[in-house]
């Protein structure tokens, strides 16, 4: 079963292109892209069990700490650099976005929308929000930098990233066009550096 956000990402990746997947987890996304888009490239992952899982899924994986940047990669060496539901768990959020736009011609970023109405409702009721895209308790979440669509777009503007495409999904992978920052639970952005 292919995740809806993986399908969406695959649409934004050109056939036969070179892809770098930051925080590739078990490598399922990259394996999917290899299959449907014939991409080549690498996944980056820090957790040992996920490195093993990615190897089992047939992708090239590098055990590197993303927080230390992407100094191993030359400028523009990938067509697309992907941050799939990884951004919110990064400490150096701005740095990794700058790095992805240095290394890749384009970047694809997906993240859970903190502005989703169910999240807002839970906060109004005095609780930290939980949802399928943010399934953690406040005390065990790996997420340190949650944001809304507006927040992310403000950061893009600040670092000179141009938003080329935005797509927002509600529960069950349904596309949300009306009031996306309220009704969307997962955000998808395709960005590139304005200077190139």
């Amino acid at each position: 079963m292919i995740r809806a956000d993986h399908e969406l990402i695959a649409k934004g990746v050109a056939p036969d292109s070179r892809v770098l997947d930051l925080g590739c987890g078990d490598g399922q996304l990259l394996a999917h892209l290899q299959k449907v888009r014939r991409v080549t490239g690498y996944g980056i992952e820090i957790v040992p069990e996920r490195v093993v899982a990615a190897l089992k899924n047939g992708v090239q994986v590098l055990q590197v700490n993303l927080e230390e940047g992407l100094s191993g990669f030359m400028d523009g060496s990938f067509d697309t650099v992907i941050l799939s539901q990884t951004l919110q768990a990064m400490r150096h959020t701005e740095a990794i976005l700058r790095e992805m736009l240095r290394v890749g011609r384009e970047g694809i970023v997906t993240f859970p929308n903190f502005g989703y109405w169910r999240h807002r409702w839970q906060v109004l009721n005095g609780m930290m929000p939980k949802s399928p895209d943010m399934p953690y308790e406040w005390y065990d979440t790996p997420n340190v930098h949650l944001c809304t669509l507006q927040d992310f777009e403000a950061l893009c503007a600040r670092i000179g990233a141009q938003v080329m495409e935005r797509s927002v999904m509600g529960p069950h992978g349904v596309t949300v066009d009306w009031l996306p920052n309220l009704r969307g639970s997962l955000a998808y952005y395709r960005i590139r550096s304005q200077t190139t």
Partner: peptide, 16 residues
Amino acid sequence: VQALLDNRVPVSYAEI
């Protein structure tokens, strides 16, 4: 690893 990446060689790397 770096030199292999520069040459776009398929490589995996684990730091145990």
